[in-house]
Design a protein around this nucleic acid. Structure first.
Lengths: 146, 146
DNA sequence: ATTACATGTAATATAATAAGTTACAGGTTA
DNA sequence: TAACCTGTAACTTATTATATTACATGTAAT
């Protein structure tokens, strides 16, 4: 299955906070842009807060960036929202037959290979920042007006 | 969510076919090693057959390798079993608000970045073969006897 | 030919999970 | 105190993976 769209939504939120940094961005307003329920936004914002990426406080309207856009990588976001369960990108079948040579060794044989692939993915995500995303957004916006 | 364990099971199957190449490996026998239902095995074997990785024929017992173990990369298997739906590793929320600058551009802004990360993952998977997996299995088996 | 037994596959059941929603507790400010 | 926000628990709904049942079809040996 695909990686949770929570990751994409989180990127959306951060981009919005960057572009609308002079406004007050409430969960309801953000939800209107993402097109989902405000509670979904608040939950994701909570993840981002725990990771130190945004500021939000109970009772006070709006979320804001805690870091510069260029200092937030997609990997930061990916890990913040736990896009993948228990940090395990690849699912492995459990309880293979211990009476079989392959069955009793397959998990340990595969694991390091999966970890390597996972790290390659994470490295790629680490090379991109939200500033790049916003840059892409603004560039496309420019092209629309032509 | 994690990538389907169908991928890991397919690797298990191919490793088994390599190690037990002198035996007749029926879906029931393989299912015993993986610890699942024979129908699950037959379905995955069907994927592998379509990708030209194994030989199987209706009515005749057993599957066998169609290529050398060192000529089957994890990427071949990954694609064969469609470990990820529609080749889209990352899920993206749909119908963001077109009335918002971010909403109407976010999907296109993110997509190429996700593709890049996905390709990094696939490249890593392409660097490993089933022969490597079998090698790991046999190495672990050796260590057990010490 | 008929029997035994395998694969292929449709249909269904079960379980796990993501996303959306409701409801409300608790915090903040005017 | 009133208005309004965030935080969060509880629940619903939708989607999907995996397991299972049932059976059609193919093969080979007797």
């Amino acid at each position: 299955m695909s990686i949770s769209s929570r990751f994409a939504v989180a990127i959306h939120i951060l981009s919005l906070l960057g572009i609308n940094k002079d406004q007050i961005n409430t969960s309801e307003w953000i939800a209107g842009s993402v097109n989902t329920n405000p509670v979904v936004i608040r939950k994701i914002t909570g993840y981002l807060k725990n990771a130190g990426l945004v500021h939000v406080r109970p009772g006070v309207a709006g979320a804001s960036l805690a870091r510069d856009l260029s200092d937030i990588s997609l990997l930061d976001v990916y890990k913040a929202v736990q896009a993948v369960p228990e940090n395990e990108l690849f699912g492995i079948h459990d309880q293979p037959n211990p009476a079989c040579t392959v069955g009793r060794n397959i998990q340990q044989a595969i694991e390091p290979l999966f970890v390597t692939a996972q790290l390659a993915l994470e490295k790629a995500l680490g090379n991109v920042t939200i500033a790049d995303v916003v840059s892409n957004i603004l560039e496309q916006e420019r092209q629309r007006s032509n």
